[in-house]
Design a protein around this nucleic acid. Structure first.
Lengths: 224, 224
DNA sequence: GGGTCTAATGATGTATACATCAGCCTCGCT
DNA sequence: AGCGAGGCTGATGTATACATCATTAGACCC
């Protein structure tokens, strides 16, 4: 299927934002996008609307459009919900996962371990992602999986900063092991509890995190 | 603030869908909408895109656009998630609600009782809504509240059928009382448990519900 | 010198024309 | 009569022109 310009534009911008090539607070110039992608305002407009809908972009009426910059309070709220959704995924996965899905999970786990051993942060980031996605899939609730993925996407621009924290990768890995063990044991309560803590640890050590965001905010204030 | 045509159109369609004036599976004719609202294709297109994003409308490429018709399996999945989100709201509300919010809750509760006593299904439906919204608000998590509201909206076309079930209103009211009591007592575990059951009861008595949906599906097959 | 009104600018929403694409129907061939 | 190719039709995406509105900046008045 052929993708429309609006779709390509949306994907490109989304990717830029998620991967930090465009940082929260940055201004998006519709005119510049028209030039760069060699399209008219219509598809640009469309793409931006979609990004607004998914929460990655904010538009201040008559002031301009910007990469969404969520306040710390809202960020905390979002992590709270993320923890709940992931908890639900893990709980259901512990009850419903098939043998095949358990294999997928332990393979994803193994890839995480390999990346951690190699000290490859980016690779770990990627494999960590697929471990979590495997849990979503094992919940046997497609709607939940898609909601969780969407929220995860939305949090990505901020989550990315976290793995840089010292020892986070090693600790994360250990947490993964416990989560996997609980799911394999069919212990839904433990699985939910552990993944919830796994997600919230970021929140509990928010002091580190906050300072990163503040820094980011500071840098942007100069730019914008 | 002045609302754009696209917004008005979106709201009108959303309202139609949510309140059953347009039923799932019904075809939406862009041309007809242009005529009825006396606008060009542009705002219609925009409104439809927004509705697709919110899940109320589906478009089959090159085949037409229709009021979203979610399968029973997906419906069950959505209720599962709804129960989780509402459970989280109640849990947080039990821990965080202010005195004012507790007053709001018991007032909403009183209005529900009045409506139930009067046997006014529509009124009860409306007040039931505001009771749940009050719980969302009391969670002190704006993001969660908005996600929960959004999902509730999306389920409305189907939920509406349920209150018609015999005695559902009376039972619902009793459940509300227990939920409110748990929140007032600050018992987060009980509050979560009770509201979750409250939401899922609809799922557990799905045999009644399913038949309604099947009926609806049947009627639509004739039309579309 | 400061406040306010106004005009310019740019953002936004809308209409319309056009291009392209896919489904579907019809016609023709076998 | 069945099957297939091609054209017709409507759906979709895009470009462009235009209207409108708010913000901003500048000028004028007090």
């Amino acid at each position: 299927m052929k993708r429309s310009n609006a779709q390509r534009l949306r994907d490109a911008l989304e990717d830029d934002i998620i991967n930090g090539r465009r940082v929260p607070g940055e201004r998006l110039e519709p005119l510049a996008l028209c030039r760069d992608f060699e399209v008219s305002r219509t598809p640009v407009r469309e793409a931006i609307h979609q990004l607004v809908a998914s929460g990655l972009v904010t538009v201040l009426p008559k002031r301009g459009t910007f990469v969404a910059r969520v306040g710390l309070d809202q960020l905390i709220e979002m992590f709270e919900v993320m923890a709940e959704l992931e908890g639900m995924c893990a709980r259901l996965a512990a009850r419903r996962a098939t043998k095949e899905e358990l294999v997928d999970l332990s393979q994803a786990m193994a890839r995480c371990e390999a990346a951690a051993e190699a000290g490859d942060t980016n690779e770990y980031y990627y494999e960590n992602e697929s471990f979590h996605l495997a849990i979503y899939a094992a919940s046997h609730n497609g709607f939940l999986a898609s909601e969780a993925s969407q929220l995860k996407q939305r949090l990505k621009p901020y989550r990315r900063l976290q793995l840089k924290v010292r020892h986070r990768m090693v600790n994360s890995l250990a947490e993964h092991r416990e989560i996997l063990a609980a799911i394999e044991a069919g212990d839904d309560v433990a699985a939910e509890q552990r993944i919830r803590e796994h997600v919230l640890i970021q929140g509990e050590r928010f002091s580190d995190f906050v300072s990163s965001v503040r820094q980011l905010d500071g840098a942007l204030t100069l730019t914008g």
